[in-house]
Amino acid sequence: MKKYSFLFLLFLSLQVFGQAALIPERPSPNRLVNNLSSSGILTNNEEEQLERKLETFANQTSNQIVIVIVDDLQGMEAFQYATELGQKWGVGQKDQDNGIVILLKPLGGPGVRQLFIAPGYGLQGAIPDLATKQIRENEMYPYFKENKFYEGLDKGTDALMSLAKGEYNSDQYAPKKKGGFKLWKLILLIIVIVFYILRNNRRGGGGGLSMGTGFLLSSLLNSGGGFGGRSSSDGGGFGGFGGGSFGGGGSGGSW
C-alpha cells in the first residue's frame, strides 16, 4: 500500500513539474512591467514610467503589453518561455487574445542575451512575425547595443502600440465587470429586508430569519464577489490580466 501511494505521489509531482511550473507566477497585484532580473537595467523611475504608459494603453484599448525581464530562461527556448508565460498569466482579454509578451534576457554576450516579442493569437494579424523582427532590429537593438534599455523598450512598445491599436480599440471592447455590483441584487435584497421588517412588526417582534431566507440572503451577498469585487485586489492599475491565449507566434533573437 505504501509503495503504491509513493508511486502515486511521484506521478503527481511529475505532472506538476512540467514546463509551466518553471515559469514565474503572475504577480499580485498584476503588473505590466516585471523586472525579475538582477541586472539593474532599469531604474525604479523608468520602470514606473513604462508601467504607467502601458497601463494607460491597456485601459484605452484593452490590449495588454507585458514586459518581463529575467536572468534565466530555465533551459527553455525564448519563444517557449514567452508563449508559456503569456498563456499562464493570461495576458490580453479572453475573447480577443490581444496580449503581447516582450521577454528580455539582458545578461550575457551576443547570442546569449535574448529578446522575444510574442503577440497573442488575436494580434498575429496586426503584428505578424516579420513586424516583430523589424521592431526588434530597427527600434530596440540600436539602443540595447548602447545599453540604453529604457529607450529601447520605450520605442519598441511605441511601435507595438501603434500596430495593436488598429486591431482592437475601446469601441470593440466593453470592459468586463469582474464581480461587479448588480442593481437587481440590491433591489431584491431591499425587498427581502422590508418584507421581514413588516412581518416581524406585525408579529410583534421576535423570530429570526428562516433557513431559506438566510440562504437566499447569504447567496446574494456572496455570489460574484459581493459588493467588493475581486478585480480591485488583484488587478493592478489596468483591471488585471484577462485570460488571453498565446500560440507560439512572434520572433526573437540576440543583438
Binding site: F79, Q80, G247, G248
Partner: peptide, 11 residues
C-alpha cells in the same frame, strides 16, 4: 516566418 511556423507547430 519559418521560425514562427515551427514554433507554432511545436506549441
Amino acid at each position: 516566418q519559418y521560425e514562427g511556423m515551427e514554433n507554432r507547430i511545436s506549441t
